[in-house]
């Protein structure tokens, strides 16, 4: 397609083997997830790691999918918002009123899931430090903290 030879990206996404052929070498994992695998839950808000909206797990580690080159995901295991075992966190976000436009929400849910996995009952300071990379423009964050506390109480 005039973009070079293209690479093959083959990885496990949400427990399923996914393969994309002819991927342009410069495509991010975010683009591959969204446009190749049809998983649009990870969001393309800044594509420079500054907003956290594309947070996913890569081999169990919380990362920004926009900062992973598609080819780097070869042979790796990716969990996106669509495959997250995160019902309690998700329900807490809805109940606490922590969702407005929701563009930041999938990333925040994944980051919250990661936080509560590491620290089941985080202090407010720990919540704030852990979620500092997830920018929300709508809520002013108060209800996001409520949601994390609500989810922590449930876990």
């Amino acid at each position: 397609m005039g973009l070079g030879r293209g690479v093959k990206v083959s990885c496990t996404v949400n427990g399923h083997k996914q393969v994309a052929d002819g991927v342009w070498e410069g495509e991010s994992l975010l683009y591959v997830l969204r446009e190749r695998f049809g998983l649009y839950g990870s969001k393309n808000a800044c594509e420079q790691g500054e907003c956290g909206s594309c947070s996913v797990y890569l081999d169990g580690t919380l990362v920004c999918a926009c900062l992973v080159l598609g080819g780097q995901a070869n042979g790796r295991s990716v969990v996106t918002i669509e495959g997250l075992e995160g019902a309690k966190v998700q329900q807490a976000y809805v109940e606490a009123g922590a969702v407005q436009c929701g563009f930041c929400t999938p990333g925040l849910v994944v980051a919250t899931h990661d936080l509560l996995h590491r620290v089941p009952h985080p202090s407010e300071a720990q919540i704030r430090e852990a979620l500092a990379g997830n920018v929300c423009r709508c809520t002013g964050y108060a209800k996001i903290i409520d949601a994390v506390n609500l989810a922590a109480g449930r876990l």
Binding site: G41, T80, I81, E82, Q90, Q91, V99, P106, V109
Partner: peptide, 9 residues
């Protein structure tokens, strides 16, 4: 739309 949004759907 809350549930759809928290699930990335």
């Amino acid at each position: 739309d809350g549930l759809l949004k928290v699930r990335g759907e």
